[in-house]
Each structure stands twice: as structure tokens, then as C-alpha cells.
């Protein structure tokens, strides 16, 4: 006869639950807390920091990477990655400039359609071709950048925006806030709603949380994966188009390395790189955090942009270390 001698010991469970709760809160809102701390430090350190024009400027500068990072958050939540967004950003800008000859509709529709299609293609390879997202979108990064150069004579042409209404979208605003900021924030709000209150959103978390379990539960795993790459492509395209409006032209060489800062912002914002957990509000805080660091370094004046890269890099490393520690204490 077999007697299973298994019985649990219960002490210290409450303690652990509390520790896990703290870790989980820190992971979700850590970026926001750090942002507030930095804002306070900035306000006391630099007289020009806490002015409306400076803060508005930070928001405008953040709006383009924020839109890209929103799309990236969707992808990372499923456990994937999209390295092509920097190139798509440039493509979106160039296409918006070309498309503006057909008016504002052309400037918006052309980049959306093309970037959406490229996202779709990448998504098909990842979701149905079962290829590694890293490789597929790395190929996308190279190929799309090549495409951008091809349509601009090797990058020597910088097509100008020919539609004043579209330039206005990029450069004007309301109450001193740029439209681009409004677009980005609307993206965050709609995205948050989609993630937390729709079936599709729940499926995204499920696929990232455990792909095999999602398959067992009969969730449309492939369709979910496909859709996040389309969303990411669209977001990168929109951000690129708005950036073209902002700078009145589609510059072929913008967005180099943008994929990496977008990924950094998403991770700093508390989204797990393995997927299954994270939020767009966290991503918002992550993007703003990186922008504020950049702004503060600019305020010092004597430091150049290389220092900013070093600081951002060190900061990211610290965040990743903290996240790992927090994840371990939650036994993720």
C-alpha cells in the first residue's frame, strides 16, 4: 500500500504574500514613482525645468517614441519583440511626405497602409510561420531601412510635406499642447481600454503568460500574435507620419535605434520582456522618464548627448536588475 505523505507547512505564507504584493506594486508603478522623484529633483535643481514651455517641450519630444512604444508594448506583452519599428518610423515619414501630394488623406493613409501591410507580413511569419520574432523583425529592420533609402535615392532626397493642413497637425496644438501629444495620449487611453476591457486584450496577456496554456484553452493564439505586429507597424507608421508633419519633411535617416529606446521604455515601464504582464500607463511613464533624463542632461548644458546615452543605458540596466529581483521575489 502506498501512503502519500504530503502535507504542507503553512507559516510564513502571509509574510510572503505581503512581500509579493509590494514587489508587484513596485514593478507596476516603479517607473511612475521614479518619474515623480526626477521631476521634483529637476524642479529644485534647474530654474527653467518646471516651466510650462519646458514641460510641454518634453511632452512633444516624447509623443513620437510614445506612439511607437505603445505598439511595442502590445508586441512585448505577447512575449514577442519588434525590431523593425525604427525603420518603419522613417518609412512612415517618407511616405507621409510623398502622400501629402494627394492631400491630408494621402499623407495619413499611405504610411498607414504600407506600414500596416509590413506589420501584417511580419506577423504572418511569426504567428503562422512560427519563426522567431527577433529574426523576422531584424530582417524587417534591414529591409525596411533599405526600402526607405530606395525611395529616396539612397537617402539623398528629403521629400517635403506639401499639405499645410498636415504640417499643422504636426506643429500646432491646443492650449499649448501639441496635437501629437494628444494623439499619443489617446493611443495610450484606447490601448489601455483594449488591453484591460476586451477579450482581444485578455488574449494578449494570456498568450504572453503561457502560450501552450492559451492553445489548450482554445484561444486564437496565431491571430493574437498576428494582430500585435500589425498594431506595432501601424503605430510606428503613425508616429513617423506625425514626425514628418512636425519637421515638415520625411527625413530618411530618422528612427535609427528607435526600436531600442522603445523597448527600453516598455521594460522600464514594468512590462515583462517575456510577456504576460505590463501596462501602457507603465510605458507612458517609461517614455517620459527617458525624456526627462534627456531634458535634465540638456539643462546641465556642459554634458553632451553621449552622456545622455550612457545615463539611459545605466538606468535601463538598473531597472532590469530591479525587475529581476522583484520577479524572483514573486516567483514569476
Amino acid at each position: 500500500m502506498t501512503v502519500a505523505i504530503e502535507q504542507s507547512v503553512k507559516p510564513a505564507v502571509d509574510n510572503r504574500a505581503r512581500r509579493e504584493l509590494i514587489a508587484s506594486v513596485l514593478q507596476s508603478y516603479g517607473a511612475a514613482v521614479a518619474l515623480v522623484v526626477l521631476l521634483v529633483v529637476g524642479a529644485f535643481s534647474f530654474p527653467t525645468f518646471l516651466t510650462f514651455s519646458n514641460l510641454s517641450n518634453i511632452l512633444t519630444q516624447s509623443s513620437f517614441p510614445l506612439i511607437v512604444a505603445v505598439g511595442m508594448t502590445f508586441v512585448i506583452l505577447t512575449g514577442g519583440i519588434d525590431l523593425s519599428v525604427g525603420s518603419m518610423f522613417a518609412l512612415g515619414g517618407v511616405l507621409a511626405a510623398y502622400g501629402s501630394s494627394w492631400g491630408i488623406v494621402g499623407a495619413v493613409v499611405l504610411p498607414l497602409v504600407v506600414c500596416g501591410m509590413i506589420g501584417l507580413f511580419q506577423g504572418l511569419l511569426v504567428a503562422y510561420g512560427k519563426m522567431a520574432p527577433f529574426i523576422v523583425t531584424l530582417a524587417g529592420l534591414l529591409a525596411v531601412r533599405g526600402l526607405v533609402l530606395a525611395v529616396t535615392n539612397g537617402g539623398s532626397t528629403t521629400p517635403l510635406i506639401k499639405n499645410p493642413a498636415f504640417t499643422a497637425v504636426g506643429q500646432d496644438g491646443i492650449f499649448g499642447i501639441h496635437w501629437t501629444v494628444i494623439v499619443a495620449l489617446v493611443g495610450v487611453i484606447l490601448g489601455t481600454l483594449a488591453l484591460s476591457r476586451t477579450r482581444a486584450g485578455q488574449s494578449i496577456f494570456a498568450v504572453g503568460g503561457s502560450e501552450s496554456a492559451s492553445i489548450f484553452m482554445g484561444l486564437p493564439v496565431a491571430r493574437v500574435k498576428l494582430s500585435v505586429y500589425i498594431v506595432s507597424g501601424l503605430c510606428a507608421g503613425v508616429a513617423g507620419a506625425l514626425n514628418a508633419g512636425y519637421s515638415s519633411s520625411g527625413v530618411p535617416i530618422v528612427g535609427v535605434g528607435l526600436e531600442l529606446s522603445a523597448i527600453s521604455a516598455v521594460v522600464i515601464g514594468g512590462t515583462l520582456l517575456v510577456g504576460g504582464r505590463g501596462s501602457l500607463v507603465g510605458t507612458l511613464a517609461g517614455v517620459l522618464l527617458l525624456s526627462v533624463i534627456q531634458n535634465m542632461i540638456n539643462q546641465v548644458g556642459s554634458l553632451n548627448s553621449s552622456v545622455q546615452a550612457v545615463v539611459s543605458g545605466v538606468f535601463l540596466a538598473i531597472v532590469v536588475v530591479i525587475q529581476t529581483v522583484l520577479s524572483r521575489s514573486q516567483r514569476l
Partner: peptide, 10 residues
């Protein structure tokens, strides 16, 4: 075969 990070109800 469930998603550990999501709630019981989810």
C-alpha cells in the same frame, strides 16, 4: 494549463 499571472476569474 492555465495562465499563472492572470486572476482565477480571468
Amino acid at each position: 494549463n492555465l495562465i499563472p499571472l492572470m486572476s482565477v476569474a480571468q
